[in-house]
Amino acid sequence: MQDIRKHAQGAAGPTLSIRNLTVSFAGRRQLVQAVKNVSLDIWPGEIVGIIGESGSGKTMTALSAIRLLPHKAQVEGTIHLGERDVLSYTEKQMRALRGDRIAMIPQDAMQSLNPSMRIGRQVGEPIELHRKDSASRIKTRVRELLASVKIGDTDQRMQEYPHQFSGGMQQRAMIAMGLALDPELIIADEPTTALDVTVQAEVLRLLREIRDNTGTSIAFITHELGIVAELCDWVYVMNKGEVVEQGCVDQIFNDPQADYTRMLLDATPSIHGPRDEVPNV
């Protein structure tokens, strides 16, 4: 499977490559391993789903790529973003990467947006921080970005504050901010969990469009199998800190190998009624 994937992506290396990652925390009596010996790759232009239930280590794995783990975390293994050895970077070097080469879309946009900063300024902030662009050029870019995430009436919207946006619009603004500097990798951590299904469908469609148009890689963390089925190209299934299975979406859903994946599939209620009634194509 790995070979098929590499072949499909051409000769260039993966955008993100994690090898033997272990993240542990010192507990009262022993070391608690939140992530155990995880290896995963995200190739250019790929949407990779990292799926698992709470406590599976999916968020910890993704956060380690952007080095946002709690200070107490002990990290072993290697993480490469392109050629960069992320774990050897200083905090200053990391700050240059975050928001520029790697963007993060969080679960709760309202919590992540600054309530007292206008949307326009906020979406342009990564450009302001990372590039020495003129105010007017930043403004033009922000307009483009908002249009690309389908926020209409941009001049008016740029003047507004986050609370004037609906949940779906806030999440779009976060995505626009993430896109500001054409990152190589977007880490989306359950970005649609707080949204209604119809709004969620729009946001998912948008993410796919962005991938198609910009060729950026997306790591999509979720607990929902349905989203993975519709959005992702490749899937890592995590349980209790370990990757229990990986594969392309067809394989994971049609021919799951790990017991845990099978259990997860069986446990997920389907909108098409009981699972055994789902037509098996």
């Binding site: 119809t198 349905g226 989203i227 049609n254 098996n280």
Partner: peptide
């Protein structure tokens, strides 16, 4: 109808993806 269509469904992979290319992504 819209509400039902908006639900991401695990069965989607079985119904709609079966037979498509293993990896339909082309890097930009």
């Amino acid at each position: 109808r819209n509400l039902i269509a908006a639900v991401p469904d695990p069965a989607f992979a079985r119904r709609n993806r079966a037979g498509t290319a293993v990896h339909p992504v082309s890097p930009a």
